[in-house]
Measured scan of single mutants.
Amino acid sequence: SDEEKKVRDQAKRLGVNTEQLLKWARRQGDEDLVRIVERLLRS
């Protein structure tokens, strides 16, 4: 999905993997991002 591509691009920009991005999203309190990243991790 578009959202998932955006998440992957953001992880690349930050230089982190998906698990690290999830931690980062939780720290930001970004519920939408957390949900998308969790979906990516499960897929």
Rank of each mutant, 00 (worst) to 15 (best):
R27S: 15
K12S: 06
D2T: 09
V16P: 02
T18A: 12
I36K: 05
T18G: 07
K12N: 07
V37Q: 00
I36L: 13
R26N: 04
D32W: 14
K6I: 12
D32F: 14
R13I: 09
L14G: 02
S43I: 13
Q20Y: 05
L41D: 00
L21S: 00
S43E: 12
K6M: 14
I36H: 03
D9E: 11
R39Q: 14
S43V: 14
V34E: 03
Q20C: 15
D30G: 13
A11H: 05
A25E: 00
I36M: 12
R42Y: 13
R26I: 14
G29R: 05
L22P: 02
E19H: 09
D32M: 11
T18R: 10
L33Q: 00
Q28V: 09
D9Q: 06
V37A: 02
L33D: 00
V37N: 00
A11V: 10
A25H: 01
A25Y: 04
V7S: 07
E4R: 08
K12A: 08
E3G: 10
E3K: 15
T18L: 15
R39G: 06
K12H: 06
V34M: 06
D32I: 14
K6D: 08
V7M: 04
E38Q: 04
E4V: 10
L40M: 11
E38G: 02
V16L: 15
G15P: 03
R26G: 02
G29A: 04
R39C: 15
A25M: 06
R39T: 06
L14V: 04
G15Q: 07
R8K: 07
A11F: 11
Q10G: 04
G29M: 06
Q10E: 11
E31S: 12
L21F: 04
R13E: 04
E38F: 04
R42E: 10
V16E: 02
G29K: 04
E4H: 09
A11S: 04
D30T: 05
R42W: 10
R8G: 06
G15N: 06
E38T: 06
L33G: 00
L22E: 01
Q10M: 15
R42H: 06
D32H: 10
Q20I: 05
R35H: 03
V7Q: 04
A11P: 04
D2N: 08
R35K: 11
R27F: 11
Q28E: 07
E4F: 13
L22N: 00
E38S: 03
L22C: 06
G29Q: 06
D2E: 11
D9M: 06
R42D: 08
K5N: 06
D2F: 10
E19C: 15
W24T: 02
E4C: 14
G15S: 08
L41F: 03
S1L: 11
L40C: 01
S1A: 07
V37R: 00
K5G: 06
D2C: 15
V16Y: 15
T18I: 15
E38P: 00
R8V: 09
K23M: 13
E19G: 05
R42Q: 13
R8D: 05
R8P: 05
R42A: 12
K6V: 08
R39E: 08
L33H: 00
I36R: 04
L41G: 01
E38K: 11
L40A: 02
R26V: 11
R27I: 14
L40S: 01
I36P: 00
K6E: 05
S1N: 10
G29F: 13
L21I: 06
R35N: 08
R35W: 06
A25D: 00
S1K: 10
V37E: 00
L33S: 00
D9N: 07
K23L: 15
E31G: 06
L41V: 04
E4G: 07
E38R: 03
L40K: 00
S1W: 10
L40R: 01
V34D: 01
K12T: 11
E31W: 15
E4A: 10
L14T: 03
N17P: 07
G29C: 15
R35L: 05
N17Q: 03
R42M: 12
E31N: 10
E3W: 14
D32K: 10
T18H: 13
R13K: 12
V16S: 04
G15K: 09
K12Y: 06
E3L: 15
R8M: 12
Q20K: 09
R13A: 08
D9H: 04
R35E: 12
I36F: 11
W24A: 02
E38L: 14
N17V: 11
G15C: 03
K12E: 12
G15V: 06
V16K: 04
K23G: 04
R42L: 10
R13W: 11
R39V: 06
E38W: 06
N17Y: 12
D30E: 05
L33C: 02
L21P: 00
I36A: 08
L33A: 00
D32A: 12
L14D: 03
E3D: 12
E38M: 10
S1D: 12
T18S: 09
L14N: 03
D9Y: 08
L33K: 00
Q20M: 07
E38I: 10
V7E: 04
V7F: 08
S1H: 08
R35M: 05
Q20E: 13
D30Q: 07
D2S: 08
K12W: 09
E3Q: 11
W24F: 02
V37D: 00
L41S: 01
K6S: 07
G15L: 09
V34P: 00
R26W: 07
A25P: 01
S43W: 10
Q20L: 09
V16I: 12
G29S: 03
E19V: 10
L33T: 01
Q28L: 09
E31F: 11
K6P: 04
S1G: 07
N17G: 04
A11C: 15
Q28P: 01
A11T: 03
A25V: 08
R35A: 10
D30F: 15
L22A: 01
A11L: 14
E19L: 12
D9K: 06
W24C: 14
K5I: 06
Q28T: 11
D2L: 11
K23P: 01
L40Y: 13
D32P: 01
W24H: 02
